[in-house]
Design a protein around this nucleic acid. Structure first.
Lengths: 190, 190, 190, 190
DNA sequence: CATGAATGAGCCTTCATTCAT
DNA sequence: TATGAATGAAGGCTCATTCAT
């Protein structure tokens, strides 16, 4: 595969994310997508077998990226709270900087394109464990609740905050972030 | 003269919610919807002018319902914490018992059917104020943070929990609920 | 049949003519017609068996009226030219005052509603003879050309004039009419 | 890449004219048209954006053609009468040989497809002036009447004659044409 | 007779995909 | 590989007509 082609593939993916962000997953039209990318509709089929394949490919690849991000080293902070904080802020930033990717996955999970085959990929994603939570519970600084709950508080809060930031109802300056995290921490710390 | 059956309108709405829940908003096909309701496709157009009108009508009506639910009196609990708890559990129950309705609104907001006109309805919904939060801050039992943050923690956590419950990863027995709320309360109490 | 009903029938016919005049014969929609008349669509079917029947009935009845008008006594003018003039002006007036009726017939003749059955009615209409033309030729004041030609010049010119009058390009005052007729007369007089 | 076939566009137009001639403008059904042309219904939309566009395009193009025909040089006949005769016979021939085109325009002007936008095109058509008429009046061989009247007599008579010829009531041999023109000339000559 | 709800037939149009170059 | 023309399948919607009161 030549370099030129890989660029084109990326452009297709990028534009798909944009379209989904603007119009929803139901708004993906092959001809419109092609026009945005600047190629012919039939050329799309050189890179992706069908529309379903396009969507499925993007979703799978995004899920891998996201897992990778989550697993990414958590800096070498001194205290647990600082490590946990880094983790949460990492999540917050991810949601902020990858809104299109996150949005794509959210919509995909509820679309007709998400079927049995897809769900396997999704299940896999769910299994990614979190060493950090174990550490916190063992050191008795985190409440003794299961991973799901911890993650629910972390991500639920983060998602809502980002949503409100996007709507212009909240800001994300240093102080605000400190405040937001303090709430999450108060919820989970022992 | 045959008389217009209000039951029929309700059946149409109900089946639309079901379809969106099962297949996503892109899965609404007028002919399929009609078959599920047990009427002719053209009869749909007696009750709703177009497909767009159908979706917009449902969304508008659901938003009204939701606002009403949120405003509903919160019992006469003795302490503030109990009142707040009642409010949060009300939210939790709403998300649990109206998953289809909530799902419809979530999908609608990101679909091509959500346009400028629709967003006005949505903006209205956002303005619903919360007396309870004021009371909590004045009595100095809630942290002195703005409504958006409080709501972010409340609803973000609740949404995630319900999602995990639906996936079978969390349970909703009395003890669990107590636990979940304690986290929320720890996050927000002063 | 009661009087009330006959009024309604007339109203239906009248409104049909209006619609055809405004939107063309393809613009007849039973529901719209009903609304204009101020009755229910189904009531239309009390007076006319089908849409086709409605159109056919109107056409037939109009053709009868028109024949009658043509046959109508031509006053007792002294000279042949005056008689002929009266006849032509009668035609001119008819076209002017019955534009909707004439328009309906014109459109009907080219529509899918004009089929074999209908054409019989039309043929009949064509056969209406014109005693006047015979008289003119016998008295050797009209050129010795057949009825069709005479009628072609008379009606062709009249139709065009009325068309131009309707568009505001010609006027119909006494002097103008005299002028217009003088052309027709010059064409046909011996 | 398959290449766009201009023949196809012409075939579509041709068949549309035929259909309108046979069934009226209301008889245009995209599926039937496609079948007659020998293509798929969706292929029609490669050449014309919508049905309305198809009709409007044809009308506009025909009006241009017609204007052009009218403007076409009128041979270099010696006398004015011969020039005028050539002009009229040109008109007669046009009506005879382009009955479908003329019929299309006639029906279009009274159909729901003829709206404000269209009427502009039509107005333009009306403005085409006639040098010939000026010449005739100046040379004092034509009566001193305005263009509209002259045109009314010319075209009104021609239209009726062609109509009768089509119905088999008149013939168009050399002698007949001479006769018909003599009437027109008698009407207009000084 | 009068009505408005209900419907089936059919039309216009879109769109993912394939064809032919 | 790249393309734009071509298409079949399907979807939204209209409208004349009938039903049931």
């Amino acid at each position: 595969m030549r370099v030129k082609d890989e660029t084109k593939r990326l452009a297709i993916v990028e534009n798909t994310l944009d379209i989904v962000f603007e119009k929803g997953i139901a708004g993906i039209k092959m001809s419109v997508l092609a026009k945005r990318v600047g190629i012919s509709p039939s050329t799309l089929y050189v890179y992706f077998k069908t529309k379903e394949d396009l969507i499925h490919s993007i979703a799978t690849s995004l899920l891998k990226q996201m897992s990778k991000n989550q697993e990414s080293a958590l800096a070498s902070e001194s205290t647990f709270e600082l490590k946990f904080r880094a983790k949460w802020i990492n999540l917050l930033n991810f949601l902020l900087n990858h809104e299109k990717e996150v949005n794509f996955i959210d919509q995909w999970k509820q679309s007709p394109y998400f079927d049995k085959k897809s769900s396997k990929v999704w299940e896999y994603n769910k299994k990614v464990k979190n060493e950090l939570f174990n550490e916190g519970r063992e050191k008795e600084v985190l409440k003794d609740v299961n991973d799901f709950i911890i993650y629910a508080v972390m991500s639920g809060t983060a998602k809502q905050i980002i949503g409100l930031v996007k709507q212009g109802d909240l800001s994300l300056d240093k102080n605000s972030i400190d405040l937001y995290f303090s709430l999450v921490w108060d919820a989970l710390k022992r």
